[in-house]
Nucleic acid binder design. Structure first.
Lengths: 126, 126
DNA sequence: ATAAACCTTGGAGTTAACTCCAATGCAAGA
DNA sequence: TCTTGCATTGGAGTTAACTCCAAGGTTTAT
């Protein structure tokens, strides 16, 4: 698969694919005789995985740390599995943060009339 | 309350407070005789609210739209309540996006051994 | 009354994550 | 073979959201 195919298939710009590779978010992709990138299925899966986590809001800096650890422990499968679990845990923390704000909004919405009354009372005192 | 008190109480830098006000994320704060900001309780609540949504990952651009609509419909309380509900809906969508990725990771984790086997099979074929 | 510690502003600098560009080379059709 | 349309690179430009700074005025403690 050349860069254009991957770009279209996974809906990621070619510039972004090259950028991710340059900074080490993707392992180096093989080249053909004329120096063009030739993505294997595994490369494409990796891209898909990075895309999913970027889309879920994980920063590149954080992802880079995981990627480096993941590539380092090439033979320690338990460790690799742990890394996935850790990554999931971080996403769950992000969800919890948002859920807190949802709860806050829900409170505001449910007490909206009351809230407005209080503001009127405040105005009286000014 | 002066800027330093608000900054400490809500754990937001003074620069950020001034920045938010400058771009219109906070309504203009009253000044005392020498031009220093003097935050009312309502100002502080507003800051708290903005902080909560920024913390939940909502962009300033998106928040600005809400703030402008909110300030525009100063007397339309139903509309204001709707805006809060809309904002909550957007946060819930962000949560759903992250949850999808959590599910993807869970799948990877639960099928980890199997996944590794497949990779070995792939290698055989190369 | 003077130093230290505040506040103000406009504007410059920073970081993340792309995005675009120019120069150059390969590839495929008329 | 010539043109059109891909690919490559290094590096410059962009956007978001701060963050810092300098120059100046104010408040507080000694």
């Amino acid at each position: 698969m050349n860069i254009n195919e991957v770009s279209k298939k996974l809906d990621i710009s070619k510039d972004t694919l090259r950028y991710w590779e340059k900074i080490g978010l993707l392992p180096p992709v093989k080249r053909n005789a004329s120096g063009y990138r030739d993505y294997s299925d595994r490369d494409a899966n990796w891209v898909y995985y990075i895309k999913a986590l970027r889309n879920a809001g994980m920063s590149i800096e954080r992802l880079l740390k995981f990627v480096h650890l993941y590539l380092k422990d090439i033979d320690d499968l338990d460790r690799r599995k742990e890394l996935l679990i850790e990554q999931r845990k971080e996403l769950l923390a992000e969800i919890a943060k948002r859920q807190e704000t949802v709860d806050y909004l829900t409170f505001k919405i449910d007490h909206f009339e009351e809230h407005v009354m209080n503001q009127k009372d405040e105005n009286k005192g000014e």
